[in-house]
Design a protein around this nucleic acid. Structure first.
Length: 432
DNA sequence: TCTGGGGTCCTAGGACCC
DNA sequence: TCTGGGGTCCTAGGACCC
């Protein structure tokens, strides 16, 4: 038995913790560069605002509907996420932190009334951290996910499902007929693993609801689609195919990519950006004690600006030996940029990806043919420590641009709230 | 003017091997 | 007329997730 606990409209709920005046109002959180909506309060959803809606297209609703938009404040969301996860960990013996706002919990061996425990857990998270959650419980992870969807939908749209399933929904409390009824009222695209493309294909084949899908024969699904969908169908049928990953595996690739706040054309600006991305990616790499064998760089124009000539190129640069050294990785990234840069285009986005990752414990030694400094690793450690203690950007690589100068490529965030819980200066003050 | 970022897994097809 | 069989590895692209 598995549970899935996740925060409702998570980013918006995080913002509301420190600004309760936002309760009851249509609020959205915007992506980087204030580009598009990535989280919506129930009130914003009710206004018809879609996930991913470009801000410039819905901005008029500020005036007309009192819509409130905030820039993404990931420092805040990450910290609140940790607090929620530390509470949900108590719900069962094993926990998989699946995303910034979701945990799977293995309920094997947990006795008693799961629904009652779920409601207590929900109350505690709301009291202690301030985040409203939904909890779904089922025999497989896919069923727990679906139950979670039902729990949240039943709360948000009364009447859509039986009221007893609101907020905390345990499929195992339903009779087979009741469960089938829930399935019949749920479209296939709500199922974990079924996206837009496959939903269309299923619909074409006459499969519209989860009730239709669960009736299919697994082997047929495999022949017609893939092992991935077959697994999903089996999980819906109650056969657990995906276990909890309570120990997060090391990343197989690490990326740092960004759209620019404004169009960039000069190689100097791109060099700064690419160096900065390489530094961010390298830092993540060192955190997982890894080394990269290859560095991938890409630059591209905006596909949305139809009138602009389009250009998109990437290149992969092998490192002579696997490394996590920011200076070497940034060097390779800039080398790659030199190879693909063309001056005549208006660039909108660039990125650096580290590939071919391996743990730093299994380095192949080799003859030391070049006289590189033996203590490069200590330099990186010192950099990481300084940046952790005195704040990001305290020590940077020179080619990423001087911190004081305005970087042409830096991202736009005009509506960001303070880092209430992670920055001393931003801590809220309470007056007596 | 203005459209996010960071991942994973699977499959098909080509290169290559004996 | 008629040109093997079996396998691995790698890559690009598609689909999905939040």
């Amino acid at each position: 038995m598995f549970a899935l606990i996740d925060g409702n409209n998570f980013y918006v709920s995080c913002e509301r913790v420190f600004r309760p005046s936002l309760n009851g109002l249509p609020v959205i959180v915007l992506s980087n560069n204030d580009g598009c909506a990535i989280a919506r309060s129930n009130e914003a959803k009710a206004l018809g605002i879609k996930m991913g809606a470009p801000w410039f297209q819905i901005r008029h609703m500020e005036e007309s509907h009192g819509l409130i938009a905030l820039s993404a404040n990931f420092a805040l969301y990450g910290d609140i996420s940790d607090r929620v996860a530390s509470l949900t960990a108590g719900f069962g013996p094993r926990q998989e932190i699946y995303s910034i706002d979701e945990s799977f919990i293995d309920l094997t061996g947990v006795r008693g009334d799961h629904v009652a425990r779920g409601r207590r857990m929900r109350d505690r998270i709301l009291d202690w951290v301030g985040i409203p959650c939904g909890i779904g419980i089922g025999q497989t992870k896919t069923l727990a996910k679906l139950a979670n969807h039902v729990a949240k939908t039943a709360e948000r749209k009364p009447g859509s499902y039986p009221a007893k399933l609101s907020q905390v929904c345990d499929f195992s409390t339903l009779s087979p007929d009741e469960l089938l009824d829930v399935f019949a009222h749920t479209n296939v695209e709500e199922v974990w693993g079924i996206g837009r493309r496959i939903a269309v294909q299923l619909n074409t084949g006459g499969v519209f609801t989860v009730a239709d899908l669960v009736k299919l024969d697994a082997a047929t699904v495999r022949r017609g689609w893939s092992v991935v969908l077959e697994r999903t169908v089996r999980e819906l049928q109650g056969v657990s195919c995906v276990d909890i990953e309570d120990i997060p595996p090391d990343k197989k690739e690490i990326a740092s990519t960004r759209s620019f706040g404004q169009v960039v054309t000069s190689k100097a600006d791109l060099t700064e950006a690419v160096t900065d991305f390489a530094a961010r990616a390298s830092e993540k790499l060192r955190k997982q004690r890894g080394l990269a064998g290859q560095v991938h760089v890409f630059i591209r124009t905006s596909p949305f600006r139809k009138d602009d000539p389009q250009y998109s190129r990437s290149i992969t640069i092998p490192l002579r030996r696997p490394s996590c050294d920011t200076i070497k990785i940034a060097g390779a990234a800039v080398l790659g940029l030199d190879a693909i840069y063309k001056p005549e285009f208006r660039y909108a986005k660039a990125g650096v990806m580290l590939l071919d990752l391996q743990p730093d414990s299994i380095v192949q030694d080799e003859l030391d043919l070049d006289d590189e400094p033996k203590d490069a690793g200590r330099l990186m450690t010192a950099m990481d420590v300084l940046n952790r203690r005195y704040g990001k950007g305290t020590v940077i690589v020179g080619s990423s641009g001087t911190a004081g100068a305005k970087r042409a490529w830096s991202m736009k965030q005009e509506r960001r709230t303070p880092a209430y819980t992670t920055c001393w200066e931003d801590m809220p003050r309470v007056r007596a």
